[in-house]
Design a binder for these strands. Structure first.
Length: 342
DNA sequence: GGGGTTTGACCTCAG
DNA sequence: CCTGAGGTCAAACCC
C-alpha cells in the first residue's frame, strides 16, 4: 500500500499552488494573534527559543532520494524530519476531505518562511495527498510524537515497527492530528477568529479541554500546549503543538476518554466538521496503517481521539502500550468504551 | 463568581 | 552527580 499511497494526485498540486498564493495574501491574522503574543512576551517579537540555532539544521540535510520518502532509514530520526518546514505547513494545507477546502492560512509562510523555501517547494511537489486513505502518513505514535504532520506524511512506517515502539512502553500517546478543518472554518469568518479559536480549543474533537501548561519544545519552534480533559476523572490529556501562525501542527493524545463525548451546544461551530469527520472515519476506518493518524492534513479531519483509536485499529497498540505504560496509563479500560462506541 | 488561560516555577527523567 | 528538556503545578489573570 505504501507505494500506492505515495502517488501524487495532480489535483493536489494545483490546490497547493492556489493555497500558497492565498496564503501570501492572507498571512495576517493568524500571525498577528500569535505573533503579537509572542512579541509581547519576549518583548522583541522574537521568541527566546528563536535565538537558538535551528536544531534541525545540524540534524540533517537529508539529501533525500525519493526512496527515502517511502522508507525511513533506521538511522534517520524524526527530528530530522522535523526540520522541514514544509511538512508542517503542508499538513495544514490539506483540503478537508469532506469539504475539499483548504485552510488558506494553513501555511503561513510568513512565519515559516525563514526556512528553506526551496525545500518546501520541493516537498510540496512531492507531497502526496490522499484524503481517502486517511493517511498516507503514518507515524509511530510513541516516540515520534513530535513529528510534524507533514513529515508524518512521509514518515511511513511499517506496522511492525510501530508495534515495537509501542512495546517500548512509551506509547501511551496516540498521535493524532488534525483539526485544520476547524481552522478552515475559522478562516472563513475572520472576525470570528478569536471566538472560533476558543471554541476550537474546547471542541475541536468534541471534548472539553482545559489548558494546564505551555512549553517551548526544543526541537520545534512551535509552542506546545498541554491540555487535560475537563471531564471529571477523565485522565485524557493532549499535547497540541501550534505553529506561529496558530495552525495546529501536531496533536498527541495521551490516554483515552472514559466518558462519552459531551454533546454540548458549544460544539456547534465545529460540529459540522466533527460530524463530517466522523462519517469520514467510518468509511475509512480500515486504514491499514494504524498509527497513521493524521499526520498530514489529510487526516486532519480524522483526528478525533476516539476516532483515531477506534477507526484506526489502534486498539491493539493501545492495549499493549497502555498496559505497559506505567503511570498515567490509567488502567482504565479505555479501549473498551471506544470499542463499545464503535 | 466560575471556569479557562497564561506563565513562571517546580518536578522528573534521561543523557 | 549535573544538566537540560519535557511535563506539570498553581497563582494570577482574563472573559
Amino acid at each position: 500500500m505504501a507505494a500506492s499511497s505515495f502517488s501524487f494526485p495532480t489535483s493536489s498540486s494545483s490546490f497547493m499552488t492556489t493555497s500558497f498564493t492565498d496564503l501570501l495574501a492572507s498571512d495576517d491574522y493568524p500571525t498577528k494573534g500569535l505573533g503579537d503574543r509572542i512579541a509581547e512576551r519576549t518583548g522583541s517579537g522574537v521568541p527566546k527559543f528563536k535565538s537558538l540555532p535551528p536544531p534541525s539544521l545540524p540534524l540533517s540535510p537529508p539529501p533525500f532520494s525519493p526512496s527515502s520518502y517511502f522508507a525511513i532509514p533506521p538511522g534517520l530520526s524524526p527530528t530530522e524530519l522535523l526540520d522541514s518546514p514544509v511538512l508542517l505547513s503542508s499538513s495544514n494545507l490539506l483540503p478537508s476531505p469532506t469539504t475539499g477546502s483548504f485552510p488558506s492560512h494553513a501555511f503561513n509562510w510568513k512565519s515559516s518562511s525563514h526556512r528553506d523555501v526551496k525545500q518546501e517547494d520541493k516537498n510540496y511537489s512531492d507531497f502526496s495527498f490522499q484524503p481517502q486513505v486517511g493517511t498516507a502518513a503514518s507515524i509511530s505514535q510513541s516516540q515520534t510524537n513530535h513529528v510534524p504532520l507533514g513529515q508524518q506524511a512521509w514518515n511511513y512506517q511499517e506496522p511492525t515497527k510501530q508495534n515495537d515502539q509501542n512495546a517500548n512502553g512509551r506509547s501511551e500517546f496516540n498521535t493524532l492530528q488534525s483539526f485544520m478543518q476547524n481552522n478552515n472554518d475559522q478562516n472563513n469568518s475572520g472576525n470570528q477568529y478569536n471566538q472560533s479559536i476558543r471554541e476550537q480549543k474546547r471542541s475541536d474533537d468534541g471534548y472539553n479541554w482545559r489548558k494546564y501548561g505551555q512549553k517551548q519544545v526544543k526541537g520545534s519552534e512551535n509552542p506546545r500546549s498541554y491540555y487535560k480533559c475537563t471531564y471529571p476523572n477523565c485522565p485524557t490529556k493532549k499535547k497540541v503543538e501550534r505553529s506561529l501562525d496558530g495552525q495546529i501542527t501536531e496533536i498527541v493524545y495521551k490516554g483515552n476518554h472514559n466518558h462519552p463525548k459531551p454533546q454540548s451546544t458549544r460544539r456547534s461551530s465545529s460540529s459540522t466538521a466533527s460530524s463530517a469527520i466522523q462519517s469520514y472515519n467510518t468509511q475509512t476506518n480500515e486504514i491499514p496503517d494504524h498509527q497513521s493518524y493524521g499526520s498530514n492534513g489529510q487526516m486532519d479531519s480524522v483526528a478525533t481521539p476516539e476516532n483515531s483509536s477506534i477507526s484506526f485499529g489502534d486498539d491493539d497498540h493501545e492495549h499493549t502500550s497502555q498496559k505497559s505504560s506505567r503511570s498515567r496509563g490509567d488502567d482504565l479500560d479505555e479501549e473498551e468504551p471506544d470499542s463499545k462506541r464503535w
